[in-house]
């Protein structure tokens, strides 16, 4: 689904990631952890084609990322739902329209009942008409998750999705992500919150990857 083969990424003259080789199998659940600035966000951006590797080979859905045209990358992103820590929305559109945006840009109309159900699933059923600037941090994260999955992606990537949330809200978001994984979606969460990882491992078989010294290693049981 997403495969890295001896990938390196350099920025500003220095190498941020090097010798990265891994494969995200369909239906898998991964955490990516490491200290701030280690390259977690960079790794996620490499995963959905926002950045290109300096060396090595990244394959997205069996196609080498360098061979993808701009349109191909756009179409690939429709198969990858992205939840970022600093979720951005179209502030002039109500929440429901923002959540339905992946369908809109794909030329598909959203079914009002489905959209309503989805908003209810993430606990935002009453805020369908609210404008994004009026939402709290937790509401924005859940809205971003709803937007990420509305088009039915194969992979969900989340970059510090609980970074601005309290513990209760973090657990709620984690539950949604776990539920998605149980439905067959591949999930990768970048986080430095080890408590969140421990909580998830109690619910689901998750692999934990750790970025250390520019490389990604499989973490042991010392979390």
């Amino acid at each position: 689904m997403i495969a890295f083969d001896n990938v390196a990424y350099s920025y500003g003259g220095g190498e941020l990631l090097s010798e990265i080789s891994l494969r995200l199998a369909p239906g898998s659940f991964h955490f990516l952890t490491g200290p701030s600035g280690a390259g977690k966000s960079t790794f996620l951006k490499l995963c959905y084609g926002e950045l290109l590797p300096s060396a090595g080979r990244i394959t997205l859905f069996d196609r080498e990322v360098r061979s993808l045209s701009r349109d191909d990358i756009a179409l690939t992103r429709r198969r990858i739902g992205m939840v970022q820590q600093d979720c951005q929305f179209l502030d002039h559109l109500p929440l429901a329209a923002n959540v339905a945006l992946p369908l809109t840009v794909a030329g598909k109309a959203s079914v009002p009942q489905d959209l309503s159900d989805l908003l209810g699933w993430v606990g935002l059923g009453q805020l369908a008409d609210a404008l994004p600037p009026s939402l709290s941090g937790g509401e924005r994260q859940r809205a971003a998750l709803a937007r990420a999955i509305i088009i039915g992606p194969d992979v969900v990537l989340a970059d510090e999705p609980t970074g601005n949330l309290d513990w209760e809200m973090s657990l709620r978001l984690l539950t949604l992500l776990v539920e998605l994984n149980r439905m067959g979606k591949t999930v990768l969460i970048a986080t430095h919150d080890l408590n969140l990882i421990r909580q998830a491992k109690s619910q689901i078989a998750a692999r934990v990857l750790r970025i250390s010294k520019r490389r990604i290693q499989l973490a042991g049981a010392d979390l």
Binding site: D91, H92, G107, K108, V111, I150, G152, M183
Partner: peptide, 24 residues
């Protein structure tokens, strides 16, 4: 959940696509 399985890609095209541009 049956919800996601109902979110199939074959939906009628949204004719209000230009709304994505802020109006002012």
């Amino acid at each position: 959940m049956s919800l996601l399985s109902r979110l199939t890609p074959d939906r009628k095209a949204d004719r209000q696509a230009d709304r994505v541009v802020p109006p002012s």
